[in-house]
């Protein structure tokens, strides 16, 4: 086994990468064909050809719109979002040396909800800011507060976590206060729905923002993959291995914060993925981050696409919030993984 490591097994790696790509494509294809309106696969493929390559194949206008503008953009967004959240979780678990760390730990989702509520109910920013803009600003505000708190408390891992918990509680309380005192029943329902995550509003312009953020974020994380491995025995051990600990921590915390804030602003808070996918990926590919992070991207992406499909078809005539589906199906799946890992060790 050690010899395999000496000369990296390129054919195997390429095969694995291709398999991942095929799996992702299949998941997207499934997401594009499955839905309330039954559209046969050939029609779906023609619609994709028209949309992606500017072809002029015969497809009904409504079917073209549903496939390309609604389902494809939604599926791609789900993939990006799942991947970004899973990577963020993996990074935070390594940096803070805590298996319970997850992307919303730094107060991002709580801040986003407060920002969204300010726009939705208090009418801040009017039409110019929009829900996503408000959520993003809220995330950044919460992050800044948590960062200040953590730095003031000494900046060690447990202080970051405590500061995150305190910041989240504060912003969640602010959200609850606004909703309970000022919102109508209809608005409260809307907020509730948004908080649990929703891909329904995703259109192509959202992807023009989310795609570069996710790819650049992923690249930054990959550059630091070896540094992340060195954090296994703590900050001093990492520093004595030549890692510029303060810089790496700052860059990676900022990257995960940006990734998470962008996703939360576009699709709301989707729990569970960022916490659990990194653990599932670790069972599959081991703890080394050079393999773990790509695995998180792919597994997180596929998981989220499948969860989104389920959220659309589970209850007829109704779309379940995606956050409910990820937890409802993710938790038992993870329990199974934990159980099997226990038996094999």
């Amino acid at each position: 086994m050690t010899h395999a490591a000496v000369s990296p097994n390129w054919p195997a790696r390429i095969a694995l990468a291709l398999a991942a790509l095929v799996a992702l494509t299949l998941a997207v294809a499934l997401a594009v064909t499955v839905g309330e309106m039954a559209i046969p696969l050939p029609v779906a493929l023609r619609a994709l050809g028209n949309g992606l390559f500017g072809l002029d194949l015969p497809v009904g206008a409504i079917q073209q719109g549903v496939i390309f503008d609604y389902r494809l953009s939604r599926a791609l967004m789900a993939a990006l979002c799942g991947g970004a959240l899973a990577i963020s979780g993996a990074i935070l678990q390594a940096l803070l040396r805590n298996p319970l760390a997850e992307p919303y730990l730094l107060g991002v989702s709580a801040g986003a909800s407060t920002g969204a509520v300010c726009v939705m109910i208090l009418g801040f920013g009017g039409a110019t800011l929009g829900l996503s803009g408000g959520a993003f600003l809220g995330s950044v505000a919460a992050l800044a507060l948590v960062a200040l708190l953590a730095a003031g408390a000494g900046g060690s891992s447990d202080r970051v976590i405590l500061a995150g918990v305190a910041g989240s509680q504060l912003f969640n309380a602010a959200t609850a206060t606004i909703v309970t005192t000022l919102a109508s029943a209809e608005q409260a329902r809307g907020v509730m729905f948004w908080l649990l995550g929703n891909f329904g509003g995703v259109r192509w312009p959202d992807l023009w923002v989310a795609t570069p953020v996710a790819l650049i974020g992923f690249l930054i994380c990959m550059i630091n993959a070896k540094a992340l491995d060195a954090f296994a025995f703590g900050v001093d051990a990492a520093a004595s291995l030549g890692i510029a600990v303060a810089r790496v921590r700052l860059v990676l915390l900022a990257t995960t914060a940006l990734l998470t804030a962008t996703m939360v602003a576009i699709v709301g808070t989707i729990g569970f993925v960022g916490l659990v996918i990194p653990h599932a990926a670790r069972f599959l590919v081991g703890p080394g981050h050079a393999r773990l992070l790509p695995a998180c991207l792919v597994i997180g992406g596929i998981f989220m696409i499948l969860a989104d499909i389920l959220s659309r078809i589970l209850v007829p005539q109704q779309i379940l919030p995606i956050g409910i589906v990820t937890a409802l199906f993710g938790a038992p799946a993870f329990a199974l993984i934990l159980y099997r890992a226990r038996r094999s060790s």
Partner: peptide, 18 residues
């Protein structure tokens, strides 16, 4: 110094090459 990460002896020694 210890860790909760599931590393093998070899994984730990490899960190020295960082």
């Amino acid at each position: 110094a210890t860790t909760d990460v599931h590393l093998t002896v070899c994984d730990v020694v490899r960190l020295g090459r960082t």
